[in-house]
């Protein structure tokens, strides 16, 4: 019997099931300037406005020259120090070269419009409750113990261990919070939430964060980048929280040097440990994630947080918003050929 890979037997062309082009115009110029020049739809223009507002709300203000440089390349103020970006890197003789190099970084603005590549599925893709229900047969998801919508708490399963609550929608989520039991109706904040049972409490754990894009040529999902984050589960994305982060080489499963950084702070990351090491459970995690996504070929963009347990990998978070900072502490991720094909295909 010939080898069987769901969705990957022959070039399927399934994906996109329908055209998912975000811009109507030509997509030759892959730099930020090209991207901004192509903005022609309500969703993308709206994302640009939100980005611009977020940039200007940042305090303290950056030097005008650095600020203008970062804003006009789609980065929020913290990325300058974090990635070591500066207008001084521009070669006055050859400014396009710098622009091309910078285009290899996934910018904050680009991360905000990437989910649109999920096409018809994009609105539902930013809902964690839907993601959890949809993919429970194909991914090793942590148990969903409950959810809250419009003030009503809904019990989905038995509660064991700690409960982490997250915002239901990835676009406008409140901070994650811990619970001992499912909260009663009407307590706490009024946001819609999902309650996820996790095998660890508030202590720091190692989380493998895997960003997956769809390769339009191979018609299969591929790992764009990955990072090993160390910190409590509720603090991985919270503004102001400090954590350690190692970049993972998707080809080898080796994690590089460990750097400490603080979310949103304008500061260079501090190197804690120069040594690289093997990521425990990397291959089982990648295998589970990629084979699951092949069986349900819906997402063009998805990011998964996986922890390594005695029973194997467990997915503890799913989102369509890629983590710009953690994935790129040691360099850009959008320079890979498959990533360039993705940008050309979807126009983001």
């Amino acid at each position: 019997m010939s080898m069987f890979v769901p969705g990957g037997v022959r070039p399927p062309g399934l994906f996109p099931a329908e055209p998912r082009v975000i811009y109507q115009t030509k997509r030759k110029n892959l730099t930020h300037e090209g991207r901004i020049g192509r903005l022609d739809r309500t969703e993308t223009l709206n994302a640009f406005r939100d980005f611009s507002h977020a940039f200007h709300a940042h305090r303290p203000r950056l030097e005008p020259e650095l600020g203008g440089y970062l804003h006009n390349h789609g980065f929020l103020p913290d990325k300058g120090a974090l990635f070591g970006l500066s207008p001084e890197l521009i070669d006055p003789e050859n400014p396009d070269e710098h622009s091309d190099w910078l285009g290899q970084y996934l910018s904050d603005f680009q991360a905000a419009i990437l989910p649109l590549a999920n096409g018809r599925y994009a609105p539902a893709g930013s809902n964690r409750l839907f993601q959890w229900r949809l993919q429970r047969r194909v991914l090793p998801l942590a148990p969903l113990v409950g959810s809250r919508q419009s003030g009503r708490v809904i019990r989905h399963g038995a509660t064991e261990g700690a409960i982490l609550s997250r915002g239901m929608n990835t676009g406008r989520e409140g901070l994650p919070a811990w619970h001992d039991a499912l909260p009663g109706a009407g307590t706490g904040d009024d946001d819609d939430r999902v309650y996820i049972g996790v095998p660890c409490g508030q202590e720091a754990v190692e989380v493998t964060r895997i960003a997956v894009l769809h390769d339009p040529q191979a018609k299969l999902p591929f790992v764009l980048g990955a990072a090993l984050l160390t910190g409590p589960l509720d603090a991985l994305d919270a503004p102001g929280s400090a954590m350690e982060c190692r970049r993972i080489d998707p080809e080898t499963g080796m994690a590089g040097a460990s750097r400490r950084f603080e979310r949103g702070a304008v500061a260079a990351p501090e190197t804690v440990d120069e040594n690289s090491r093997i990521v425990p459970g990397w291959w089982p995690a990648v295998t589970a994630v990629l084979s699951g996504l092949r069986q349900l070929p819906v997402w063009a963009v998805i990011q998964l947080d996986v922890i390594d347990t005695a029973e194997g990998p467990m997915v503890v978070d799913l989102t369509d918003r890629l983590d710009v900072a953690a994935l790129q502490l040691d360099g850009p991720v959008m320079g890979a050929e498959a990533a360039i094909r993705f940008v050309k295909e979807f126009g983001v």
Binding site: G7, F15, R133, R136, R137
Partner: peptide, 26 residues
């Protein structure tokens, strides 16, 4: 996929995308 945890759902054998090849899923 979303109702798989509640009732028997039909197995999905294959999908033909728009202007695309047929993809085997089982």
């Amino acid at each position: 996929h979303t109702l798989a945890g509640y009732c028997t759902v039909p197995e999905i054998h294959a999908l033909r995308g728009l202007d695309a090849e047929e993809v085997s899923l089982t």
